[in-house]
Nucleic acid binder design. Structure first.
Lengths: 133, 133
DNA sequence: TTAAAAATAGGAATCATTACTGTTTTGCAA
DNA sequence: TTGCAAAACAGTAATGATTCCTATTTTTAA
């Protein structure tokens, strides 16, 4: 199935490139709709899936029950704050090394990896100290 | 809220200990029901969540839309075969090191991590070669 | 310019998980 | 032991993210 251009897909991708906070399909939908009020949620889902399948964006699952998307496809880690639900990037240089080691140890073929850390971000830590006063 | 003993929870945990393939809630349900036909799916979900929240088991998300559970709570990685959907363990000694580095780099507090590799397992690679003949 | 292939909008369907409710079990204390 | 409040349960209804469906519109190669 050849992929044809669509304005909607272009807008979805463009929007995702402007964001570093790994929005969900619904957030993408609500934002793109500002500029293109007729777009449907199904179209957003379909295109996010298409882009992710083609490796142009990343689908991230942090365990909050909703998929997040990232236009940065370089190998990197994520941090999920279980307090505020925020998803942030984390660059660790040992990531490439880990990929190599994993492939050496695995009898199958590894295509990609996903690394996520869970905890409480600085902002939420400070806020909880604030509230104890 | 004090946790009280329940036979259902005990059976769920016992079953999970016998398995190394990271079953889903539904698989746990179907198996425990063999021995305890009255157990309800809601009870299985509630207890898996309770055990995971208390750190007695691990909730694993590999992106197939269903949560998997693991009685082995030691820090280790997983491999997900996108062909057969199987989830297997992977021991990589650099995992501890990565956790330490992540905590050093992160301004917040990291509680846990999840590392998953995606690809095709040996069995499925062989099978696809077989089918091409 | 045309027509087949691909994509869309809008809404219905799916399905894993959670919430609700009346009943049963657990475990502390009298 | 017995009484009782807290916790857990079974069964079922509700939720909500995501996918599927269909008639219509857009894209693009010839």
């Amino acid at each position: 199935m050849a992929v044809k251009y669509s304005r909607q897909r272009q807008m979805i991708y463009n929007f995702l490139m402007t964001r570093k906070d790994h929005p969900t399909a619904d957030v993408v939908y609500k934002n793109v709709r500002q500029e293109y009020p007729n777009i449907s949620l199904g179209t957003v889902y379909r295109n996010l899936t298409l882009l992710a399948d083609r490796g142009e964006i990343l689908r991230i699952q942090v365990g909050d029950g909703v998929d997040h998307f990232d236009a940065d496809t370089s190998r990197h880690c994520h941090f999920f704050c279980s307090d505020c639900g925020g998803v942030t990037d984390m660059q660790l240089d040992c990531v490439e090394d880990m990929f190599t080691r994993a492939q050496q140890k695995c009898s199958g073929k590894i295509e990609s990896q996903s690394i996520c850390f869970y905890g409480t971000c600085r902002k939420c830590l400070d806020k909880s100290v604030e509230n104890q006063k």
